[in-house]
Design a protein around this nucleic acid. Sequence first.
DNA 1: CTACCGATTGACT
DNA 2: GTCAATCGGTAGA
Length: 201
Amino acid sequence: MATNPLRREFYDRDPVEVAMGLLGNILVHQSVEGTVTGRIVETEAYLAKGDSACHAARGRNRKNASMFGPPGRAYVYPIHARYCFNVVTEPEDVASAVLVRAVEPLDGISLMKQRRVPDRLREIANGPAKLCEAFDIDRVLDGWDLTRGVRFWIERDGDFNVGQFEVGRSERIGVTSAHDLPLRFFFKGNEFVSGPKRMRT
DNA sequence: CTACCGATTGACT
DNA sequence: GTCAATCGGTAGA
């Protein structure tokens, strides 16, 4: 069956636009264990310029190389003994990205529960590292081309009405610099968004 | 080689 | 709200 991944042009834009545009779209990972999908409900933008919290702020290295690659690739990096998943935005050599912080589990929930302990539905993917555990995203997928629609991609859900949620905006969670930049976006009131209630409304 | 740290999480007051 | 466990990557001796 043909897949319908978001195209390169979607990602080849300002990370703030991509971060807002990703909300409501569906993340898909087909692994040997089975297929899991989830609706993106929370994102954060990391800018190529003027953003000290961006991993590329102090230049290129082996770890952040994917961020300097073409748009529409994955940037997966390890932190605190876990992984986080970003999509690369803007043209090659412009190092910006969007962190996918939370998804609402849709298909393959039993498989996600197998991978996640505890397995309460709301807690399965309401955080960047939780999402990676539930979706089995690790460094093997760093640099993966999300626009091919093979194994790992993001697609639009034509039946989903984006307007049913108001989009909230806040400072980013967890960053130790550039606190003031309001670059986090989320569906207000959606229970699968990460953080305490005040960060979800 | 060792030292340090983080875009986290989960447990706890 | 606070705090410690976690470990791969990087920087520095």
